[in-house]
Measured scan of single mutants.
Amino acid sequence: MASDGVVVEIGKVTGSVGTTVEIPVYFRGVPSKGIANCDFVFRYDPNVLEIIGIDPGDIIVDPNPTKSFDTAIYPDRKIIVFLFAEDSGTGAYAITKDGVFAKIRATVKSSAPGYITFDEVGGFADNDLVEQKVSFIDGGVNVGNATPTKGATPTNTATPTK
Rank of each mutant, 00 (worst) to 15 (best):
T155S: 12
F101R: 00
G15W: 14
G91W: 01
G57K: 14
P154L: 10
P56C: 05
A72E: 00
G99E: 12
D45G: 13
E9V: 12
K33N: 11
E86H: 01
S110P: 12
D58N: 06
A106T: 09
T157G: 12
D55H: 07
V134C: 06
I52V: 06
V121M: 06
A92V: 07
S135K: 07
V108F: 11
K103M: 14
T107V: 12
K33A: 11
A112N: 05
I95V: 04
A112K: 08
G18K: 07
V41Y: 00
I59N: 08
T19Y: 10
G89K: 00
N142D: 09
I116N: 15
I51Q: 09
S3L: 05
S32N: 06
E50M: 05
G34Q: 05
Y44W: 15
V25Q: 03
R105F: 04
T161V: 10
N127S: 02
P46N: 08
V8W: 01
A146E: 13
D62H: 15
D62M: 15
T153Q: 12
G123R: 00
R43W: 02
V21D: 13
F124L: 02
I35N: 13
N127K: 02
F69M: 03
F27A: 06
V17F: 15
D55K: 08
K150N: 11
T96N: 04
V143D: 14
D70E: 03
F124S: 00
S88P: 02
I60E: 15
E120C: 02
V21H: 05
N64I: 05
T90H: 08
A125R: 00
L129T: 02
I137S: 13
Y93K: 15
V134S: 08
D45E: 08
R28G: 07
V61W: 15
R105L: 13
D98I: 05
Y44E: 14
T20D: 03
K12E: 06
S16A: 12
G99Y: 10
R43A: 09
I59D: 10
P160V: 12
V121I: 15
A72N: 00
S110E: 08
P154T: 11
G99K: 12
G11M: 04
P56I: 05
R28C: 15
D45S: 09
A94R: 08
E120D: 05
F40M: 03
I116C: 08
D76N: 02
V61N: 15
Y93D: 09
A112Y: 04
P63H: 08
F84P: 00
R43I: 15
F124T: 00
G5S: 14
E22H: 05
F40S: 02
P56E: 05
F27M: 13
G29A: 15
N145P: 12
Y74F: 02
T147W: 07
K97C: 05
S68A: 14
E22F: 13
G114A: 08
M1V: 13
A102I: 09
G11W: 15
K78W: 02
A36I: 14
D58P: 05
I95S: 12
G140K: 14
F27E: 06
D138S: 11
Q132S: 05
Q132V: 06
G114V: 13
A112G: 04
I35K: 01
P154H: 08
T14I: 05
A152Q: 14
T149C: 11
G140Y: 09
S3A: 15
V21F: 13
A152E: 10
F84E: 06
D4N: 08
G140A: 12
I10T: 07
R77T: 02
D76G: 01
D55W: 14
I23Y: 07
T20Y: 11
D128H: 07
I54A: 03
N64C: 10
E131L: 01
K103A: 06
P46I: 08
D39W: 01
D119S: 08
P24E: 04
V100Q: 09
V48Q: 10
A146S: 09
Q132F: 03
A2G: 04
G89Q: 01
F84I: 01
V48S: 05
I35R: 00
F136H: 12
Y93F: 08
V13Y: 08
Y93M: 15
V13D: 05
A72L: 00
K133H: 12
N127M: 02
V41E: 00
D70W: 15
G151P: 12
S110C: 07
T161N: 13
Y26D: 03
V143W: 06
P113G: 11
N64Y: 12
G89D: 01
M1T: 10
K33S: 03
G89H: 01
F69R: 06
E50W: 03
G29L: 05
C38K: 01
I10Q: 04
D138H: 10
T90I: 15
V17S: 08
T19R: 06
I104E: 01
K150M: 04
A152H: 11
G139M: 05
V100D: 10
F124G: 00
T117Q: 04
F69W: 15
D98R: 14
S135Y: 12
C38G: 14
G5V: 06
L129P: 01
V41C: 02
V130D: 03
S135C: 08
T161P: 09
N64G: 02
V17C: 05
R105N: 13
I104Y: 14
P24S: 05
K12V: 04
N47Q: 04
N127V: 02
V143C: 07
A85T: 07
I137D: 13
K150L: 13
P46A: 09
V17H: 09
I104A: 08
I51W: 04
V17L: 07
T157Y: 12
G123F: 00
Y115G: 11
E9R: 08
A72I: 00
Y93E: 13
V13A: 07
N156W: 10
V130W: 09
P160L: 12
A152Y: 09
V25M: 01
G15H: 13
G114P: 06
K67P: 14
N156E: 12
S32P: 08
D87Q: 15
D62F: 15
F82P: 00
V48P: 07
A94Y: 00
V141I: 14
F27D: 11
G122Y: 00
S111I: 06
I23E: 14
I59V: 14
I52Y: 10
A72K: 00
T147Y: 13
